[in-house]
C-alpha cells in the first residue's frame, strides 16, 4: 500500500509541479515564458562553475577505488567489525556508500547475485545502500557551486553521520528481517 502511494507520488510529482506552477503563474498574470527564460539563464553558470570541483573529487574517489584500497581496508577492519555483528560481505559496501552511488549499487548487485535476492545479508545490504548518500560528492558539488573551499564542520558531520548510519541500518535491518 505504502509502496503504491509512494510510486504514484514519484511518477506524478514532476508533471504536477510543472502544471501547478505554470498555471498559477498565468493566473497571477506573470509572463510565464519570459520568466522561465530569465530564471533558466542562470543554470549554465552553475553547471560550468562546478566542473573543477567535481573533477577534483571524482578523480580522487575513482583512483581510490581502482587502487584496491577499499578491499584492503575491508580486510583490516573485518575482525573489528564482525565483533559488532557486521557480516564481512558488507564491509566494502559500508566504505563505498559514502564515496560512490553507482559503486554501492554495484556491490549490492554482487551481494544479491551471490547470496540470492531474499537472503538476510542481501536485505541488510539493501537497507544500507538505500539509506545512504554519497557524502563526498554532495560536499564537493554543493560547496563547489558557490566557491566554498573551507568546509568547516560540514565534513566531520557528514562523515560521522555516515558511520553512525551504517550501524543504524544494521540495527534496523536486524529488527525488520532478523
Amino acid at each position: 500500500m505504502l509502496k503504491e502511494v509512494l510510486a504514484v507520488i514519484s511518477v506524478s510529482a514532476i508533471p504536477a509541479l510543472l502544471l501547478v506552477i505554470t498555471l498559477y503563474g498565468a493566473f497571477k498574470k506573470v509572463p510565464v515564458y519570459e520568466a522561465f527564460i530569465r530564471g533558466s539563464k542562470q543554470g549554465f553558470g552553475i553547471g560550468v562553475r562546478i566542473i573543477p570541483y567535481l573533477i577534483a573529487m571524482l578523480v580522487a574517489v575513482g583512483m581510490f577505488r581502482a587502487s584496491g584500497a577499499i578491499e584492503l581496508a575491508a580486510e583490516y577492519l573485518a575482525p573489528l567489525l564482525s565483533f559488532i555483528g557486521m557480516p564481512a560481505d558488507l564491509i566494502p559496501l559500508a566504505i563505498v556508500r559514502s564515496l560512490s552511488g553507482s559503486g554501492a549499487l554495484g556491490i549490492l548487485g554482487e551481494i544479491a547475485a551471490t547470496n540470492g535476492g531474499d537472503a538476510y545479508v542481501t536485505k541488510l545490504a539493501a537497507v544500507m545502500t538505500g539509506s545512504s548518500e554519497t557524502t563526498f560528492y554532495v560536499l564537493a558539488l554543493y560547496f563547489g557551486s558557490v566557491g566554498v573551499t573551507k568546509f568547516r564542520h560540514a565534513l566531520a558531520a557528514g562523515v560521522l553521520a555516515d558511520i553512525i548510519g551504517i550501524f543504524v541500518a544494521l540495527a534496523v535491518g536486524k529488527l525488520a528481517f532478523g
Binding site: L18, G25, V30, V32, S40, K41, Q42, G43
Partner: peptide, 13 residues
C-alpha cells in the same frame, strides 16, 4: 538546472 531555475522563477514572480 536551467529547467528548474526557469520554473522556480515563474513561481517566484
Amino acid at each position: 538546472m536551467a529547467l528548474w531555475l526557469g520554473v522556480m522563477r515563474i513561481a517566484e514572480e
